[in-house]
Structure formats: structure tokens, C-alpha cells
Simulated assay, not measured.
Amino acid sequence: METNQQVEPRHKEPGDPTVAQKATSPEFLSATVLTACHKLDHAQITELVTELKEQTAAVHTDDMSRPESMLIAQAHALDGLFAKLANRAFSVKSLDVMERYMRLALKAQNQTRTTLQTLAELKAPKQIAFVRQANIGNQVQVNNGTVPTRAREIRNGPNELLEVTYGERLDTRATCAPGGVDTTMEAVGAKHRPSER
């Protein structure tokens, strides 16, 4: 008994999809879900697949009227669901049940907002900018080029405010030399003192 038998590939006619291709197509999968949701006869699945393929082809030719209609209809349905759940939340006596209804209502409200945002992006897509270099961060500076001559001259030295000489801490209690503005500054004399302390 020989185990190394070669399997001949099955030739199919062009335009004749296999069962696997049919069963995994997006249109077929959506049609099975729609059939189950609406309790339709399974004989109508071919008709559903045909309709879904037409709608898919329209999107491929940049006709977005069907997706736009679908999104606005879904937004209205979600808004109605929000109103129903919010009204039901206010009609119950139990605070725990009211909180559950309000959580569901606010989820429906958020989904309405997301659906409308998707519709807005579909109508007016965001502009995409292709840049040579993107730096993402907080307070990032990128110098793509030569360093200016002035920048080469600047040298980072120690903080001169805290030290008189390098490595020796400044004694803040000691007297220091007068500044350059008023070198003759001295204590207030008797002439300028107030009469009462």
C-alpha cells in the first residue's frame, strides 16, 4: 500500500466559486444572520446574498448613499432606545433597577453619538498628512540640520547662583560685597530716621 499518492487539483470553471468561498463570503455570512434575526425562510438566503453583493459593489464604486442611510437610521433607532430606557428608569421604584436602566440608556446614548461621529467622518473624511518625520512626545525638539555657530559657543557650566567658586557652596549668612548699582549704600542715618519707632 503506497502512502505517497498525489492528489490531482480539482479544476473549476472560471466564475464558479467553491462551497468554501461561498460559505465564507461576507455577503453570505450577513445573509445567514439576517435570516436568523428576521425569522426568514432559508430559501430566501440566495436573494439576500444577491442584494448584499449589489450593495457591496456600490460601495466599491464610491457610492456611499446606502451606508450613510444605514448610519442615520441606526442613530435614530439608538436614540429611541435611549429615550425608552431613560423613561423606564424614572418609572421604577427601586434605586438598583433604576441604575441598571440608566446605565443601559447612557450606553445607547453614547452609541448614538459614536454612530453620528462615524457618519460625519464618512461625509467629510479627515485629511491625512504624510510627513517625513513624526515626533510624538511632550516638549520634543528636533533639529534636522547643522547646528548654528552660536549654539556651539554656548557651554553648560555649573549654576553660578549657588556657588562663588566651583564646588564651594555659597554661605547665605555671610555679608557680601555691595552690588554694582549703589556701592555707597549704608545704614539709614539719624537725619532720615523716623521720630517714633
Rank of each mutant, 00 (worst) to 15 (best):
T3D: 07
Q5E: 08
E8G: 11
R10D: 00
H11N: 10
P14Q: 12
G15P: 10
D16A: 14
A23M: 13
A23D: 09
S30N: 08
T35M: 13
D41E: 12
A43V: 02
L48E: 01
L48P: 03
L48I: 06
T50R: 07
E54A: 05
Q55N: 06
Q55S: 01
Q55G: 02
A57G: 00
A58I: 05
R66L: 05
E68W: 03
M70V: 11
I72V: 05
H76E: 15
L78M: 08
D79K: 15
N87L: 09
R88W: 11
R88A: 14
A89G: 11
F90A: 10
S91A: 15
L95S: 10
T112N: 07
R113V: 09
R113F: 11
L116I: 04
A120C: 06
E121D: 14
K123D: 09
A124S: 12
F130G: 00
V131A: 11
R132D: 13
Q133H: 07
N138E: 08
Q141G: 10
R150N: 10
E153C: 08
R155K: 06
R155Q: 03
N156R: 07
L161P: 00
L161E: 04
L161M: 05
G179R: 03
G179V: 00
V181G: 11
T183S: 04
T184H: 11
M185P: 00
M185Y: 12
E186L: 07
A187C: 14
S195L: 14
E196V: 14
E196R: 15
R197N: 12
R197V: 15
